[in-house]
């Protein structure tokens, strides 16, 4: 096997590895309903958290 071809197999294999991970991630996103609401997340991230009162912070 020539040098050029064999190194390509490595790079392509690793590239496909990332590809497979990405596909897996995408499938998971869809199946768990991550993509069902695309309207409120960009709004919700703008809200700052409600600060807790000092007394309650003991639970934290």
């Amino acid at each position: 096997m020539g040098d050029a071809v064999s190194i390509y197999l490595l790079v392509v294999a690793v590239g496909l590895g990332l590809f497979a991970v990405a596909i897996g991630g995408l499938v998971w996103l869809v199946r768990t309903g991550q993509l069902e609401d695309l309207d409120t997340p960009p709004l919700r991230m703008l809200h700052d958290d409600c600060p807790a009162t000092p007394k309650e912070s003991q639970h934290g």
Binding site: M1, G2, V21, G24
Partner: peptide
């Protein structure tokens, strides 16, 4: 778990399959 296992196995598998070829080639 799926993502990590898949990527690790793909990368390791790919590397072990290919490295002997590299060596042969050079």
């Amino acid at each position: 778990a799926l993502i990590i296992t898949a990527s690790i196995s793909l990368v390791i598998g790919g590397a072990f399959e290919i490295i002997p070829n590299l060596v042969q080639g050079s």
